[in-house]
Amino acid sequence: MHALIIDDSRTMRSILRRIVTELGFETTEAGNGQEALDALEAGLVPSICLIDWNMPLMDGYTFVTRVRADPRWRDVTLMMVTTESEHGQIVKALAAGAHEYVIKPFTADAIVDKLELLGLTVSEVPV
């Protein structure tokens, strides 16, 4: 399985990378939504995108709408991982096509729980 981690913070990408790598995911990182779209256009097929909201150039919400508008990427699971915790923002992201929503700060267990909910089971991961 492959995770595309999209966050303008190298620190947050590092935290998420350590969590999902432990679970057996391969990872690719992007510093904003446009970089992530470029990676998809170049042929990357991730099982999941972990997406920050506030980023320069292209924010996470715009990325979600762009991915959902393109049938090539309809099987990609999208999970927002963001400090945006206002109810309206959560509803907006889910309505745009995000499957799950995690608010920072999060524990590794919270990420694992969400991945299990999304059927990206960790039980198949080699130890």
Binding site: M12, T82, T83, S85, E86, P105
Partner: peptide
């Protein structure tokens, strides 16, 4: 920067909104 971003986002969520965070 990421630490103050997360803390700022959580503080914002307690207050009247909608509001936006800067970088």
């Amino acid at each position: 920067g990421e630490l103050v971003n997360v803390i700022g986002g959580n503080v914002k969520s307690l207050m009247p909104g909608p509001s936006q965070l800067s970088l």
